[in-house]
Write a protein that binds this DNA or RNA. Structure first.
Lengths: 184, 184
DNA sequence: CGGCAGCTTGAAAGAGTTCAATCCGTGTGG
DNA sequence: CCACACGGATTGAACTCTTTCAAGCTGCCG
């Protein structure tokens, strides 16, 4: 309902991978609706207010309002599409483009819920979580961010990420909002 | 129905990323059931026989047999879980473990449909598709495979992948079949 | 005024890529 | 039946990107 979450899994001691970020309005747990156990963790990135809804309640709701099934299912299919894009991000884009792509995705998704505008969005990540999301090390994320600032794509570090050059970000990240399956 | 498929996307000229493999029995297109457009491609890896079922037919079926909704939805949720595991694979495992993990996943999934046994499974990948799936280059996949053969994890190149040391593969790949949400 | 989380930096080591060939088996046309 | 074409596998060498290790630094909170 408020604040930012992330979905992640631990690998070996100390190493983890973030698989998605979640914003107010998301239903991160929908992905386990029909699964017996959870194969990963969901945690907070900031102070957050979270609504817990038992699976049984969701299933009841869907049973009485079948039209909702398509909507909820669709939501999980879009999550899957985002996972696919992240596979591409990690597999085939190097640090600079990868981080640019992450910023683009966040801007578009945050705009949808009114938490970002043309100028930028609130910065809710540490460099270390950015590293865990991108499969890079913090030691490499840091200079890459500086590099993006040097190219005037984003503004100086602060409480917000200032978007200085949206087209530059889009082109560096090879970003298209296709996979987010927005409405209009 | 027969043969092997893959789900992929092109990045820039010549570079592509495979996001999943599909075996007989899979319904790869279910992931676009509630989406307006496809944001990637699905193609064959071998000669294949494929059944095309219009979305409308699926939706009809689900409307008349609501019990199936959970099953089909579940299928897409498991696909999403596999995507998540691939994110981890690409992000946090290096070549050797990554390829080992891919082999483990294939063995488990192929066993489910009777196409693999303890000894191994049919080899349906070129080194180049393995590279596109793992985010590596063919030039690096090749010696890594040789390395796995050298460690007696898998048998010599041929029409089949011979599994010589299952436990070794599992441990090299940090594999757990958790995320596949198998029945038993 | 510490303590601490998070950010920054430098240097060395490694993993993986790219470029550029070569090799090999198989299928095809003449 | 042989030469050739071709996709796929293999190899070497130079080069890049990224990680790891190892410190410092900085700003905020109690």
């Amino acid at each position: 309902m408020e604040g930012y979450l992330h979905r992640f899994k631990f690998i070996r001691q100390g190493s983890r991978q973030i698989m998605s970020f979640h914003l107010p309005g998301d239903m991160p747990d929908l992905l386990s609706l029909h699964l017996k156990h959870l194969d990963h963790y969901v945690g907070t990135l900031t102070k957050a207010t979270v609504a817990y809804v038992p699976h049984a309640a969701i299933l009841d709701l869907l049973a009485t309002h079948p039209r909702l099934i398509g909507c909820f299912w669709r939501d999980t299919l879009i999550d899957a599409a985002v996972f696919r894009e992240w596979i591409i991000n990690i597999g085939r884009r190097e640090a600079f483009g990868h981080l640019a792509h992450i910023f683009c995705e966040q801007v578009v998704r945050l705009k949808q819920v009114g938490l970002a505008d043309e100028s930028g969005f609130p910065w809710f990540l540490t460099q270390s979580s950015l590293a865990d999301a991108s499969g890079l090390s913090t030691v490499h994320v840091n200079p890459t961010l500086q590099n993006m600032r040097g190219h005037s794509l984003i503004g100086p570090a602060g409480k917000r990420v200032e978007i200085l050059d949206w087209d530059g970000l889009v082109s560096a990240g090879g970003f298209s909002d296709d996979y987010l399956h927005l409405r209009n």
